[in-house]
Design a protein around this nucleic acid. Structure first.
Length: 194
DNA sequence: TCCACGATCGGCT
DNA sequence: GCCGATCGTGGAG
């Protein structure tokens, strides 16, 4: 499958967020390959009070202000990591939060990373931003990884018809709640529950 | 220095 | 539906 080029990421952030649905997130860990279809995303914009970039560049969020197509991972709630893709132009500070994926390859490793005993709870493996970050082994160490490289990247996958894409408000934020910047694939079981 | 808070999750009621 | 866990981050002092 075709790895997404830099030009995919440097477009308008809401466009990238929508177009990431159906694409395949790939992580190489040693001999293992973990892959999953992206089924839910959220866009975070430069003039957006809910975005980490809103108050300017800091040590934590500087990756967001870099070139598009890099991974931005942050730590929150004292115990969780969340993975984002930097988008649009350098110096602006926009990104797309990957909220959920449908696992494809490497389910065993993902379950192990999540501390789940068996596949009975398989739906809990990657149906939320902190869960998929844990399943894919994404932490602060992976923040700043170039997604056009060969360790963590995104490839073409299913083309999602417009009629299957739901646009709605974002989850878990205290400001800018009215902005419709969350996108997910309709009827997909792996989309996170509100 | 200090301190309030968070782009969440899982367990409990 | 609610609530506690748990700590890095950044703004205030």
């Amino acid at each position: 499958m075709q790895k997404l080029p830099r030009s995919f990421y440097t477009r308008k952030t809401s466009t990238v967020a929508k177009n990431l649905l159906g694409k395949i997130l790939v992580r190489r860990i040693g001999r293992n390959i973990l892959t999953g279809k992206i089924v839910e995303t959220e866009a975070y914009l430069f003039n957006d009070t809910a975005s980490h970039s809103f108050r300017g560049m800091t040590e934590r969020n500087k990756v967001m202000f870099g070139k598009g197509g890099f991974l931005y991972v942050y730590f929150t709630y004292g115990m969780h990591y969340c993975a984002n893709v930097v988008t649009f132009k350098e110096g602006i500070g926009e990104a797309v939060l990957i909220r959920a994926v449908e696992p494809k390859n490497g389910m065993k490793v993902m379950l192990k990373n999540r501390g789940l005993i068996n596949e009975r709870n398989h739906l809990k493996t990657t149906n939320g931003p902190a869960k998929l970050a844990q399943a894919f082994g994404l932490t602060k160490k992976q923040s700043g990884t170039d997604l056009t490289g060969s360790v963590i990247f995104i490839t073409n996958g299913d083309t999602v018809p417009r009629s299957k894409i739901v646009t709605t408000t974002r989850i878990g934020i205290s400001t800018a709640k009215e902005k419709k910047l969350r996108y997910y694939i309709k009827d997909n079981a792996w989309v996170s529950k509100k």
